[in-house]
């Protein structure tokens, strides 16, 4: 898990999550929902917002409780806190729109097992103050949302010529259906990972610094 950002200030912690330590594109965490519900932009947006809110709520709670939880009961307590917030978000989404809830399906409940949420609780929130945990969770949440939108836009645009349901490529565009199907998820994520790697490599070779790429981690 990543605890390298321990010394940064709150804005630094926040920015870290969005770009340098992006949970999806750099750390490769929480892949299941990223691949499963990124076939349209609107689903990606809803899933990203749901995950970010669970992440922020559970990080804050874990950070508040950090002195009272014995280390042996850590994981069980964290996961119960996360499950509670996921259930609450599930009910809130249902009260907003049944159609959206149907589109996200079981993946909404599966936020409980998103490695990212438990990972941040364990690696950051259980050791840091509430303010810093909030900054970290917000940063990671935004980074997750950003990555989901990257994937969702590409998949919907190439797969059906639309973004957020608005046709961008005209009526004559024949959708590349495979991008909406499971293989398309794997391919476009691979594409984005390569792009980010290329970007980082190029920037660091330009500035001449030696930078250790964070490879795939556990999760």
């Amino acid at each position: 898990m990543h605890t390298t950002d321990a010394a940064a200030s709150e804005p630094g912690v926040f920015a870290n999550g969005i770009w340098k330590q992006n949970p999806v594109l750099v750390q490769v965490l929480g892949m299941c929902p990223v691949l499963a519900v990124s076939n349209t932009t609107i689903n990606a947006l809803a899933m990203g917002l749901a995950t970010a809110s669970v992440l922020i709520l559970s990080s804050a709670t874990v950070s508040l409780l950090r002195h009272w939880i014995p280390p042996q009961a850590r994981i069980v307590t964290f996961i119960m806190v996360i499950a509670t917030f996921v259930t609450c978000v599930d009910y809130l989404v249902q009260s907003i729109s049944i159609e959206l809830h149907r589109a996200l399906g079981a993946f909404l409940s599966l936020i409980v097992v998103n490695c990212l949420v438990l990972g941040r609780a364990e690696a950051f929130a259980s050791q840091q103050s509430v303010r810093r945990s909030l900054a970290d969770a917000a940063g990671m949440g935004c980074g997750f949302l950003f990555a989901l939108l990257c994937l969702g836009t590409v998949r919907e645009l190439v797969g059906s010529g639309q973004v957020f349901g608005y046709p961008l490529l005209g009526d004559r565009y024949q959708g590349w259906a495979i991008m909406l199907l499971p293989p398309g998820g794997f391919f476009s994520l691979a594409g984005w990972l390569m792009f980010f790697r290329w970007w980082t490599l190029r920037r660091h070779s330009a500035s001449g610094s030696t930078f250790q790429l964070s490879g795939p981690t556990d999760g």
């Binding site: 409780l65 009961a73 119960m80 806190v81 509670t84 609450c88 009910y91 249902q94 009260s95």
Partner: peptide, 25 residues
Amino acid sequence: LVVVGVGVTCGTLILAVHEATRQRI
């Protein structure tokens, strides 16, 4: 005790949200 305490608190919170949103759902 901690596990049970957290469990009970969580259950209560879920129950509250469930009751609050039930009619709308």
